[in-house]
Design a protein around this nucleic acid. Structure first.
Length: 575
RNA sequence: CGGUGAUUAGCGCAGCCUGGUAGCGCACUUGGUUUGGGUCCAAGGGGUCGCAAGUUCGAAUCUUGCAUCACCGACCA
């Protein structure tokens, strides 16, 4: 490809609304342009990268025995009513109506459609197991799209769904997919980790996420420093403290705290140690048989944070988790947030394991502007249950029993689930077994965020000049940079010759034939991140040489003109 | 969904307070200059000032409504 016949669209200035580095570089390198919030057009060089990622994903899926299909983006609502997700999904499900006023939706995922397909097409145990996948555009009406294609509303995803008669068979495919995902991220050249995960709104039992490690990641993932335990913080269990609760030594004492609304205020104004106080969070409870929604108190130590995913799993807590309004809290408890505590609460109380071993601690008195000190469980608070509802913090013991936890940030680029029969049961997908009995299928599902990988790869591979693409997904493998081509006859001759032989050698080559100053060309190519550069200048031509430069290492060497392309070819193949 | 802020040329911004010819830098076009790391000079094109209504002789500027976008928050006890 010649630059003069291509759409490069690089920008010198950084658009002001791009926050993270990958978003800035994707805009500056002319890979994407925003159409509306969370919606992006892929320009030629961005699309090339996207396609290369897609190709690797496809190859590894095929290699693992999955079969490609393509399902519609628009899906009829009745399928989602059948699975129960029409009501359960929140506003991020974009619902639309056709001209006949029939309800449809833009697919955020395709469990319903694939289950509908399989229940019609698969009727015998002989056809199982089967693993079907597609690479398709998804739409999720995100509350807050941000970070460019990292959290866009429309995005490209590879999703696979497998169907089985037994959990053992599902487990086998699950392991195969786990391996396929490792292969994908290895080939992409990314620093990633598979971690234990919560199954979230998709449902199911066993689940792993694949995270690309990056400080800008939106997820916290925890590792053991002594074993290979790794989990999303949502999932990581906070073990019960090993020490037993000390005996009470202090009297329950009320004290006035007119200006203390937070744990930080208490610490500052009254010298209360955060780890010897508790926070009382009030959330909405499930509806009782009369449809009345009560409140539930969740208590964590003052220096800890509530883990919403864990809290949501408590039977009496409404799903999705929602904090109670100040108004409702006051009506029920008689005090406002900032002065709440476990003493004499009339609603169900759940206490985190770490908060449950405190003695003589401080909390709100359920009376505005008042706190208690010297609170003790069982003596002052009797009706409560001890549960794990907090986020682990760095240094906590690892749930696996070995080592302490470290916390890093990650970008979720893959997620695999053992779904079980959640969808197949609701939608009646089954087959006849060898003995002629009808059996419900068990399912797995496996997703890769294709467009997000492009952004994640940049987060991990860039410098002050621009993107440093891993060779496997660079928009071009090689760029030929002739210096001041229009000033000489020799330079265009050599440049054209090298360009033609690179093409003939099957190299994905860009020929920068613009009449630009050398600085402009160098800067553009470094910004775009082409990994291999051949510079042709008068200086070297006298000796029959051209210069080769590696974008990753910055290393420069001189090559004989006739050997240059062969050398690049070897470089590419050695990776 | 709540708070804050923004919306003026393709991009980044000034002008608004105090109403009266719409500006700057980059990018783009043309000519010249320069030529191994974003040269320099000159000329030029490009705007319903987000939309709608109002006040006024006159609105980018004042008022009201709407829309879009962004940031922060949604873990606050």
């Amino acid at each position: 490809m010649r630059t003069t016949e291509y759409l490069l669209s690089t920008l010198k200035e950084t658009p002001s609304d791009a926050e993270i580095i990958s978003h800035q570089l994707m805009l500056r390198a002319g890979m994407i342009r925003k159409l509306a919030s969370g919606l992006y057009t892929w320009l030629p060089s961005g699309l090339k990268v996207l396609r290369k990622v897609e190709t690797i994903v496809r190859e590894e899926m095929n290699k693992a025995g999955a079969i490609e299909v393509l399902m519609p983006v628009v899906q009829p609502a009745d399928l989602w009513e059948e699975s129960g997700r029409w009501d359960k999904f929140g506003p991020e499900l974009l619902r639309i109506k056709d001209r006949h006023e029939r309800p449809f939706l833009l697919g955020p995922t395709h469990e319903e459609v694939i289950t509908e397909l399989v229940r019609k097409e698969i009727s015998s145990y002989k056809q199982l197991p089967i693993n079907l996948y597609q690479v398709q555009t998804k739409f999720r009406d995100e509350v807050r799209p941000r970070f460019g294609v990292m959290r866009a509303r429309e995005f490209l995803m590879k999703d696979a769904y497998s169907f089985h008669l037994s959990d053992e068979c599902l487990e086998k495919t699950y392991q195969k997919m786990h391996q396929a995902y490792c292969n994908i991220f290895d080939r992409l050249g990314l620093d990633y980790r598979p971690v234990l995960a919560d199954t979230g709104s998709i449902g199911g039992s066993t689940s792993h996420e694949f995270h690309v490690l990056a400080d800008s990641g939106e997820d916290a993932i925890v590792f053991s420093d002594q074993s290979d335990y790794a989990a999303n913080i949502e999932k990581a269990e906070a073990l019960a403290p090993s020490e037993t609760r000390p005996e009470p030594t202090a009297e329950l004492t009320k004290f006035a705290t007119p200006n203390a609304k937070t744990i930080a205020d208490l610490a500052e104004q009254y010298q209360v140690a955060p780890n010897n106080s508790v926070k009382t969070l009030i959330v909405k409870g499930v509806e009782d048989e009369n449809g009345k929604q009560g409140l539930v108190a969740l208590i964590v130590r003052g220096d800890h944070e509530l883990n919403e995913v864990k809290a949501e799993k408590i039977d009496l807590v409404a799903e999705p988790l929602e904090m109670a309004s100040d108004e409702d809290i006051f009506k029920t408890i008689g005090a406002h947030p900032g002065s709440l505590g476990p003493v004499s609460l009339s609603i169900p109380v759940y206490v985190d394991r770490s908060a449950a071993v405190l003695a003589d601690f401080v909390a709100g008195a359920n009376e505005d502007g008042q706190h208690y000190s010297g609170i003790n469980w069982d003596r002052d608070v009797t009706n409560y249950q001890v549960v794990d509802i907090r986020n682990v913090v760095e240094g906590d013991p690892s749930p696996c029993g070995n080592g302490k936890l470290i916390i890093k940030r990650g970008i979720e680029v893959g997620h695999i689930f053992q779904l079980g029969t959640k969808y197949s049961e609701a939608m009646k997908a089954g087959v006849l077994t060898e003995s002629g009995k009808h059996e419900t299928l068990t399912m797995g599902c496996y997703g890769v965020g294709v467009s997000r990988i492009v952004a994640a790869a940049i987060e991990q591979n860039h410098d002050k000049f621009g993107i440093k693409w891993p060779a496997a997904i660079a928009p071009f493998e090689l760029v030929i940079l002739p210096m001041n081509m229009h000033k000489s006859h020799r330079i265009p001759d050599v440049a054209n010759k090298l360009y033609e032989s690179a093409k003939a050698a099957g190299i994905d080559v860009l020929f920068d034939d613009r009449k630009e100053r050398p600085g402009v060309m160098f800067n553009d190519m470094e910004l775009i991140g082409v990994p291999n550069v051949i510079v042709i200048g008068e200086r070297n031509l006298d000796e029959g040489l051209v210069e080769f430069k590696n974008r990753q290492t910055g290393e420069k060497i001189s090559l004989a003109i006739d050997e240059a392309i062969e050398f690049v070819k070897q470089q590419l193949e050695s990776k």
